[in-house]
Design a protein around this nucleic acid. Structure first.
Lengths: 153, 153
DNA sequence: CTGATATCATTTGCATACGAATGAATTTGA
DNA sequence: TCAAATTCATTCGTATGCAAATGATATCAG
């Protein structure tokens, strides 16, 4: 086999694998699509709340009253984003805010009775959403996937 | 052991595993965080383009001129979103649009020479971003992860 | 004690993301 | 053929998501 033959194979035969860039194989692109699919499944089961809003309620239900800033850290939202989420939950009467007695910079956030009722009602639906999101995988695959995904997050 | 004891174990001892809802273990929440991390890595390497903008350029580079609608399908964006992305790329001179000769509903989109130059320059950086995103995993884990992620997307 | 830093919240601006409504153009089907 | 259905693009409204700037408060260091 001549050197020209090797070169030809390099630039033509292997081109599809080695040199071409396939968007649909990139982890970022697939991650974005998987996230989109999950949001869509979420909306199909919980129409009146977004995943970030649900996350805020679920975390407040878990840990109780906390500052807006701390809540943002716990649910992976920056300060500007969490403010919008809390504003909308407050407008719907699901959370209430108050000033921190000692540290006047802090805004405390807590569930209202309506918010507590809502999150207790929605958690079973959230479990279903998790199941449906992972439905294309076997139980073993799902466990592996969650373990690896957590390493990336 | 009394029935009361079993009830107690059910509601207290096993509560942490069976009945509590842990947001940080839910696939949707971790998926959102992994996606956030990827976007952050992307921005660190490609500051002047967003992942959706890059996706549009990469796909046009791959397949050549196509309709705005078809492009949206290929890069998983609805019509409203893709319009905004194309508008911004057009404003920066990276793509150009024209009317379809036969089907007057369609808006054809194509790379400009500047757009082609940009995507050729950026693809190596995108490969680096993919590597960094997957860096917490071994090569074998990364292959497994991509296979399972693709099933969910 | 006080000036420099750091933290918390807010605001603004820009960029996805999607549902719903609308209008123009095309295709289908009776 | 022609009315109904479909497709393509646009627009509007709402909701993240983040960078950067700002103001108020708290903490730290000399």
């Amino acid at each position: 086999m001549s050197g020209e033959d090797n070169l030809l194979r390099l630039v033509e035969a292997e081109d599809g694998d080695e040199n071409n860039y396939h968007l649909q194989d990139q982890v970022g692109f697939i991650l974005r699509k998987a996230h989109q699919r999950h949001v869509s499944l979420f909306a199909a089961h919980i129409a009146d709340l977004t995943p970030p809003q649900f996350a805020a309620l679920a975390k407040l239900y878990d840990i109780g009253e906390t500052s807006q800033n701390q809540l943002g850290t716990l649910i992976a939202m920056d300060a500007a984003t969490v403010k919008g989420v809390i504003d909308r939950l407050k407008a719907r009467g699901l959370v209430e805010v108050s000033k921190h007695e000692v540290d006047k910079r802090r805004l405390l956030v807590n569930l209202t009775p309506e918010g507590r009722e809502a999150i207790e009602r929605l958690i079973p639906l959230a479990r279903t959403i998790t199941e449906e999101t992972l439905a294309p995988l076997t139980a073993k695959e799902a466990a592996t996937f969650l373990r690896l995904l957590a390493k990336l997050a």
